[in-house]
Amino acid sequence: MFRGYLRLLLFGFGLLVGVQVPGFIDDYGKRVAAHRAESEESLSGFRETAARFFNGDLNALVAHYKASSDEVMRSDAQSVEHLVYRAELLEGEWLAMQGPWYAQAWHLASAADRELLDETIAAYSYQVLLAPQAIAWGLSGGLLLAWLVELVVLGAGWTLGFGRKHKIIAHEQRHWR
């Protein structure tokens, strides 16, 4: 009986953790989109300058700033270069978050920008979405957690000899006759 309640408890915990995944993915995607929009706004004036003098090539604009004899321009080159790098990074993150849910989940697990991920974790508030995607994640998480814990416990019990039926040696079996 206790094992049944433990399974239910593990399933419930896995379910609640699993339903957080789509909400977290959504929050990360919104954070990326917001930073991307802000980055584009910051670069808009430089994009106009690059369009006017360098056929829209921001890297050529940065190279021009770096090659300038004016110390202020060379100093600003680092700032503009950082803005261009950040815009490219955010564009890549935004594109990754436009794919299907499994690609988004894989991106978050394997290649997400650490700074944005930490920012999302810090600002994340737990939520229970009733979207089909969240329900699927929740049920999968619950089943997986309950199954894994049961496998570990049963494996450890089997290794330690609990629950095994001992074989009766043939001569002991005949002895009582």
Rank of each mutant, 00 (worst) to 15 (best):
I168E: 13
A51G: 06
K165D: 04
H82Y: 11
Q127C: 06
Q133T: 13
A50E: 05
L117M: 13
P22N: 08
L6M: 15
S39W: 12
A105G: 03
L130Y: 14
S68R: 04
G99E: 10
Y102E: 03
D70H: 09
L154S: 14
L9M: 12
L139M: 07
E41F: 13
F13E: 04
A156V: 14
S75A: 11
Y28W: 13
N55A: 02
Y85C: 00
A170L: 02
Q104N: 12
D76H: 09
P132F: 04
Y85D: 02
E88N: 14
H64R: 15
A77S: 15
A146Q: 12
R47I: 13
Q98A: 02
Y124E: 01
A105R: 00
G92Y: 05
W147Y: 10
H82G: 12
F13G: 04
A103Y: 10
L139W: 02
H175V: 03
Q20I: 01
Y28P: 06
G18Y: 05
F46D: 02
V128L: 14
G29P: 02
A96P: 04
S44H: 00
Y28A: 03
L10M: 11
R174W: 09
E48V: 12
G29E: 07
S125D: 12
G141Y: 06
S79N: 05
A37T: 14
L89M: 15
A87L: 06
M97Y: 00
V153H: 03
A122C: 05
W101C: 01
K165A: 14
K30R: 11
F2I: 09
E115T: 15
D76I: 00
H35A: 05
Q98N: 07
Y124M: 07
V19W: 04
A87D: 11
I121P: 06
G12L: 12
G92F: 06
G12P: 09
F24A: 08
S75I: 06
L6E: 11
A156W: 15
I135A: 15
L160Y: 07
F54V: 10
Y85F: 14
L160G: 08
L9N: 03
Q98Y: 06
A103N: 10
Y65C: 00
L108N: 06
D118F: 03
F54G: 13
W94M: 09
K66F: 03
Y126W: 09
Y124W: 10
S110H: 09
G161R: 03
F54Q: 00
L108E: 10
A170V: 07
L8I: 09
I135W: 15
L148M: 04
N59E: 15
L108C: 06
A112E: 05
W158A: 08
L61R: 01
V152F: 07
H166M: 12
N59G: 12
Y126E: 12
P132Q: 02
L15W: 03
A111D: 09
S44Q: 08
L90S: 04
G56Y: 05
L116C: 05
V128N: 03
L143F: 06
Q78W: 00
L95K: 13
L16N: 06
S125Q: 14
V62D: 07
A109E: 03
